[in-house]
Design a protein around this nucleic acid. Structure first.
Length: 847
RNA sequence: GGGCAGUUAGCUCAGUUGGCUAGAGCAUCGCCCUUACAAGGCGAGGGUCGUAGGUUCGAGCCCUACACUGCCCACCA
């Protein structure tokens, strides 16, 4: 069997990639070794894979950041670790509901709850399958048998266990208080789900009348909240309003009287300096309402409509009411001034899942206490090692600025039920026993009697994050029969930086409450993929392109950026190599050209392997073969050097840094130089020298392939199967192990210097010829070179290579003074070269 | 307003304890179809490393101030 026949001239990823994906799956190559894990927990490397939210298609950003984890997992496996790399889907909760509504056209409230939940499960399954297919096509080494879904009954059980445990520890509370509310989706939500949007508005100046004094002018952007006004605030230092302090003013149009109070939070220079406090326009209103024990006047109901107390506004939507209010006030000459506010000057908090402006509704909600343990949370966050380290600052700034406890109840249909019952008056709570979980409180009743009326099962479901924050527990099969002892903390959590305040934060929080420990040793934070966009605004300098980075939109940029579309144009290995080309935590610009470059690399790897292996036709590798030539020692030394760097970089999750070094090794050392050096030896060297070259080629190429295998698993597998398997006796490339980096031998240290000197000499010869446009094949007479004594000694054994390079008849070292003035100097070195050509030969070329 | 990053070649970016003349890819130009690879090879041009100071024998890297860009957080009357 000849290698030449086995090794096609071209690498065809379209055929090769699916072939090995199937092979790996059949061999169950990436399955976590449960038995070994139980015996040897210190060898486990466990990854808390992000379960992508089932809210539509995956985008290139997912591919980018998941690829980093995927490559890391392969490296860890090659280091002999028992890698647990699961696959999950976050298919519970509001995102799935919204997707289901969109796909099916059925709204949650239009059908029975159970009916809608069924639709949601179907939707979840459909998209989960799509996700899985994509991961497989990208060559991901997830253990697909370890897949979990957050709506599964085991996930529900663990999520509910977490709820019950926290309740028993006094960390869960049910409170009736103003909560963040989305009027569009009719649910409460948490601080983490707030997104700031900039919406233009207007300041309306309105007079509040009082007997014996001129009317007090207030400025508001929300005149529709006048009926909810419960007081007016001014700053205690603001002398202008001193006469009004403690007095009551009349709310225009509605006529109820409210007190004028002082508080530091009222800004003198904003609006008129006097501000109305309504229940509730913003968080300051809530603080004032609490602090000053103000009454509650609710103007907006949970559907975003105005309430009965709003008189002529009742029943209107908020926006409509605002317009109507201005009209009504204007009719009575109660609008003193209208000042438009530009969008950029008016940040408005919105709910990230609906885009609707935040409202505040007083309803009983479930909370997990966080505001009182900020210091502890920061401390526990410091016990996690963050990669890159500066990402910890985001976590800390988020924790420091927390102002709401975590609202975990959602007034929605499809989620993990809150395992609790409440008495009719809301004063008594009964939470399920651990043994009952999972449970839907709407379908069963507690056995103990209710102290007041009947138990009512809690209809709210949990925030999706309440479940995804226990993914380490789901992975550890917490409380299940086959619980994985000592699985926690997990080795690492990979995720993108946008969900530090949600996923990372909540996971740390829960781990702290449950176990007083970190959930994982490492948090590895990746950047985003941005799309390049020509800058159109502002001045565009002539001939200069400005590149603006913007977020990729799933809907608008589908064709260009959808992973399945990209996979039609680029092979998986190329996409992976491109993804690995960003520094850790840094956003990257989408660059299909970069994938094309990666494709070129794959061709190069293919061709170099093909050539090297064809040279070795009939050779049987044997570790006992003596390495004799300095170039061989040099090649081996370079491999070791790079291997060290690769291991160190991968240890720090700097896959890009490792790749840069590998690329230099492969492209420059191996292809441009080593292979070229060896060419002459395999033609004319002694048997011993040939053996040395072959063995070095074999070892070097295999080592290079091993180090590239995590990045480009398909092509390395293909080459391995064709050429190496027969000698290595292991089923797959990906079952090979990376040895620990070894120190250089004395010969290798020497070889390193010799190789460098040779590269220098060859470089000078190349430059000499290139500058004179002398063709590669033109034979030279004699090469003259000058260099210091030390370099000369290093070059002594390799001069034949230089001679071969220029097809010269001889090569000799001369004194520097003996060289012509236009001899070629090696850059920055003492070495110079002059090549003597036969005029006839040079003419032949030009003629 | 507070914080975190970044600013290096025309473009996109490396540059890891401070150390020879600052690198790569793309783009540009020149040469070469060389028995692995023209989807390639060899070579060339191109940089006051954001600005101004400081520390040091020596600074792209450390310190200070400033400018600009991006992000996170706060700001919502």
């Amino acid at each position: 069997m000849g290698l030449a026949e086995d090794f096609p001239t071209r690498y065809e990823p379209k055929n090769v990639e699916p072939k090995w994906q199937k092979f790996w799956a059949e061999k169950k190559l990436y399955q976590f070794d449960e038995t070994e894990g139980a015996k040897n927990p210190s060898k486990i490397y466990s990854i808390d894979t992000p379960p992508p939210t089932v809210s539509g298609k995956l985008h290139i950003g997912h591919v980018f950041s998941y690829t980093h984890t995927e490559i890391t997992s392969r490296f860890k496996r090659m280091k002999g670790l028992n890698v647990y790399y699961p696959f999950g889907y976050d298919d519970n909760g509001l995102p799935t509901e919204l997707l289901t509504e969109k796909d099916s056209g059925v709204r949650a409230h239009q059908v029975e709850r159970s009916e809608f939940r069924k639709l949601c499960r179907e939707t979840g399954n459909k998209y989960s399958q799509l996700f899985r297919d994509l991961w497989i096509k990208l060559g991901f080494s997830c253990d697909f048998d370890s897949a979990y879904s957050t709506i599964s009954s085991t996930s529900q059980k663990i999520s509910q266990w977490s709820f019950v445990d926290l309740y028993k520890k006094g960390k869960v509370e049910r409170r009736k208080e103003p909560a963040l509310w989305c009027t569009k989706l009719q649910t409460s939500f948490s601080q983490a789900e707030i997104e700031v949007e900039y919406i233009a508005g207007q300041f309306v100046h309105i007079p509040f009348t009082i007997e014996g004094l001129p009317p007090l002018q207030i400025a508001t952007t929300r005149p529709e909240l006048l009926p909810a006004c419960v007081s007016v605030f001014v700053h205690p230092d603001d002398e202008r309003f001193k006469p009004y302090w403690g007095k009551k003013v009349k709310v225009p149009f509605f006529g109820h009287e409210v007190p004028v109070l002082t508080d530091d939070k009222a800004q003198m220079d904003k609006g008129t300096g006097a501000v109305m406090c309504c229940t509730f326009g913003d968080t300051t209103d809530i603080q004032w309402w609490r602090q000053h024990k103000l009454p509650l006047r609710e103007a907006i109901n949970k559907f975003g409509k105005m309430t009965e107390i709003c008189g002529p506004l009742a029943g209107l939507k908020i926006e409509e009411a605002r317009q109507k209010m201005i009209e009504l006030l204007t009719e009575q000459n109660l609008v003193l001034k209208v000042i438009p506010i530009k969008a950029e000057d008016r940040p408005v908090n919105t709910y990230e899942r609906s885009g609707a402006p935040v409202e505040y509704i007083v309803q009983p909600q479930w909370f997990i206490k966080v505001c009182d343990i900020k210091e502890e949370l920061i401390e526990i966050g410091r016990k996690v090692k963050w990669y890159p380290d500066f990402m910890r600052a985001r976590y800390e700034s988020w924790v420091q600025n927390l102002s709401w406890d975590w609202a975990i109840s959602r007034q929605r249909a499809f989620g993990v039920p809150i395992p609790a019952w409440v008495s009719e008056d809301g004063q008594h709570i009964h939470v399920a026993d651990f043994s009952q979980l999972p449970i839907d409180p709407l379908e069963s009743k507690p056995s103990i009697p209710c102290p007041q009326g009947e138990w009512k099962g809690e209809a709210d479901v949990l925030d999706t994050w309440a479940t995804s924050s226990v993914t380490p527990l789901i992975n550890a099969r917490w409380t299940l029969d086959n619980e994985r002892k000592s699985f926690l903390p997990m080795s690492m959590r990979p995720q993108a930086h946008d969900i530090i305040r949600t996923w990372a934060f909540y996971t740390i929080l829960k781990s702290y409450y449950h176990f007083n420990d970190v959930p994982w040793a490492h948090a590895v934070i990746s950047g985003h993929v941005k799309k390049p966009e020509a800058k159109v605004d502002g001045q565009q300098l002539a001939g200069q392109q400005f590149v603006k980075k913007t977020k990729i939109s799933k809907s608008k940029d589908g064709e260009t950026y959808a992973p399945d579309k990209i996979l039609e144009r680029q092979c998986a290995d190329a996409i992976r190599l491109w993804s690995a080309g960003a520094s850790l935590g840094v956003d990257i610009l989408f660059d299909e050209n970069g994938m094309a470059e990666a494709q070129k690399f794959l061709n190069k790897l293919w061709n170099a392997s093909r050539f090297a292996l064809m040279q070795m036709e009939g050779f049987t590798p044997d570790s006992k073969i003596q390495t004799v030539n300095p170039e061989d020692h040099w090649m081996r030394a370079r491999i070791k050097e790079v291997h060290q760097l690769v291991e160190k970089s991968v240890e720090e999750y700097e896959l890009h840094r490792a790749k840069v070094e590998l690329d230099k090794l492969f492209w420059i050392t191996f292809c441009d130089n080593y292979i070229e050096f060896v060419k002459c030896r395999v033609q004319s060297g002694s048997a011993e020298q040939k053996q040395s070259a072959f063995q070095t080629l074999y070892d070097s190429l295999l080592m290079i392939l091993k180090m590239y295998a995590p990045y480009a698993p398909h092509i390395t597998e293909e080459i391995y199967q064709i050429a190496f398997k027969r000698f290595e006796n292991v089923d797959s490339m990906h079952q090979l192990r990376l040895p620990d980096p070894a120190a250089l031998t004395a010969q290798e240290t020497q070889g390193l210097k010799q190789g460098e000197a040779l590269v220098e000499l060859i470089g000078a010869i190349r430059t000499f010829k290139s500058k004179r446009s002398i063709g590669f094949k033109i034979p030279a007479e004699e090469i003259h070179f000058s260099c210091d004594a030390e370099t000369l000694k290093l070059l002594q054994d390799s001069l034949v290579i230089a001679q071969n390079f220029a097809s010269a008849q001889s090569v000799k070292s001369v004194d520097a003074k003996a060289l012509p003035a236009d001899a070629q100097e090696a850059p920055g070195k003492t070495l110079s070269v002059w090549i003597q050509y036969n005029e006839e030969n040079l003419k032949k070329k030009s003629g």
